[in-house]
Design a protein around this nucleic acid. Structure first.
Lengths: 120, 120
DNA sequence: CTGTATCCTCATGGATACTG
DNA sequence: CAGTATCCATGAGGATACAG
């Protein structure tokens, strides 16, 4: 069996997983799954994200062809972000991951407590 | 609408997503989804993981109640790792994420090329 | 074989200030 | 409003050596 995550030319699983696994992409994708959003909406909706990271995250997602950026050159400018068709398919996965996290965070918290007690 | 990822006591989405989003957990979970594995099997199967990170990843997953560790005190010792029932449910999500990555890595690669060309 | 212990590097990402 | 530019701290994670 070929090692998983092998760094050869055909399998750049790592590349894609790294992007999905960064700190903010999952949350951004999930939000855009609910429809297009403006830059400021995203910033308000995502607790704790800095301007810098929101921009970097959106640029990466755009670069990967998952998000589309639309500028309306009014004054002040308006920029909307929306999922591309492929982005939609990823947002489905991502939403289901978030649902898992919500459904099991209590179990995880309890497990951690027990583990920490037993190993201390 | 309450911000997603809010850091209050009831919503520790961040906590769980951080664990899932680290560099190796996803791959470990996916492998264990195929059944119990020995420490050395995991190390061989995951391209590029260091001993340190494999151990840390397994400890975290165990702490979260997602993986169970079984020591057989032979000489040399044998240690098997298996998913817990809740771990199984996560490994399903994770496998489906990996499948997405495999199915779309070509699209992502192409998108990146185009983006880099256009913005250079 | 299955780890632990150190050391050290580098990239992630936060804070802040500034701009069209 | 929607960014960019800079600086900087932190910690994730690799390399290596050692141990039960």
């Amino acid at each position: 069996m070929r090692p998983i995550g092998a760094a050869d030319a055909t399998c750049q699983l790592r590349d894609v997983l790294d992007r999905v696994g960064d700190k903010w992409s999952v949350l951004v994708m999930a939000l855009l799954g609910g429809g297009p959003r403006r830059y400021s909406e995203l910033q308000r909706s995502i607790e704790g994200i800095s301007q810098r990271m929101l921009t970097l995250t959106l640029r990466s997602l755009e670069r990967d062809g998952l998000v589309e950026r639309t500028v309306t050159p009014t004054s002040p400018p308006r920029v909307d972000y929306a999922l591309t068709p492929v982005g939609e398919t990823l947002s489905v996965e991502v939403s289901s991951l978030i649902r898992w996290a919500e459904e099991h965070r209590e179990y995880v918290a309890t497990s951690r407590l027990r583990y920490d007690v037993q190993t201390s």
